[in-house]
Simulated assay, not measured.
Amino acid sequence: MPVAVLTLEIRIENAHSLKDRRQVVRSLKEKLQNGFNISVAEMDEAVTWQSATIGVAAISGSRDYLAGLMKQVEDAAVRISNDLGAQVADAWWEYLEN
């Protein structure tokens, strides 16, 4: 059964503290989880206040469904990030199958 994994590199230029960074990351994660049937997690430690890596995973019997879903999630992440004063600097996804 295919699993799609999306990685989002987020730039948070307006974050001046760890609290600012956490607020953006938490809000982005919650909005993506509530809007889609996906798993979302922060993938890196808070090394800098201005960046974060978010991982998204979904499973389905259909690769076509997963491709469409990952595109929708990426588009939503860009929109939500912009609303939060951040931006998606890079995004990529891949299939994992066993």
Rank of each mutant, 00 (worst) to 15 (best):
W49K: 11
S17W: 09
D83G: 11
W49G: 03
A77Y: 06
A4P: 07
V88G: 02
D90G: 10
E13Y: 15
R22D: 00
S60P: 04
H16D: 08
I80P: 12
D75K: 08
K71P: 13
K19S: 03
V3R: 01
S17G: 08
E94L: 11
I54D: 00
A52D: 05
A52H: 07
T48L: 12
W49N: 07
I54M: 02
M1E: 13
L8S: 02
G55Q: 05
V73M: 01
A58W: 01
S51F: 09
A4N: 07
D64K: 11
D90T: 02
A4S: 10
L32M: 07
V40H: 00
I80T: 08
L84D: 06
I12K: 06
G55W: 03
D20G: 11
I54F: 02
N82D: 04
K19G: 05
K29V: 08
R11W: 04
L66E: 00
I10H: 03
S27K: 12
T48I: 11
V47A: 14
E30S: 11
T48N: 13
Q33E: 15
G85Q: 01
A15W: 06
G35P: 13
L66Q: 01
S27I: 08
T53W: 10
V73P: 01
E74G: 01
S39C: 13
A41R: 07
A91P: 03
R11T: 15
P2Q: 05
A41I: 08
N37C: 08
A41C: 12
E42K: 04
T48H: 12
I59V: 12
V5Q: 05
N14K: 15
L32T: 00
S17K: 10
G35T: 04
N82C: 11
D44C: 05
E94F: 13
E42R: 04
V24I: 10
V5L: 07
A76L: 04
E13D: 15
S60H: 09
V47G: 04
V3E: 14
S27C: 14
W49L: 03
G85C: 01
A76Q: 07
V78C: 05
A15N: 03
A46K: 08
Q23F: 13
D83P: 01
V73K: 00
E97R: 13
A46D: 08
W93G: 10
L96I: 03
N98W: 14
V73H: 01
F36C: 06
M43P: 03
S27A: 15
A77F: 06
R21M: 06
A4H: 01
D44N: 04
N14T: 14
W49F: 06
Q23N: 12
A91W: 00
N98H: 15
F36D: 11
L8I: 02
Y95M: 04
G35C: 13
Q72I: 09
A57H: 02
V3W: 06
G85M: 03
E74Y: 00
E94I: 15
E13R: 15
N82T: 10
N37K: 14
N34M: 09
Q33L: 15
L69Q: 07
R22A: 01
A58G: 10
A58M: 10
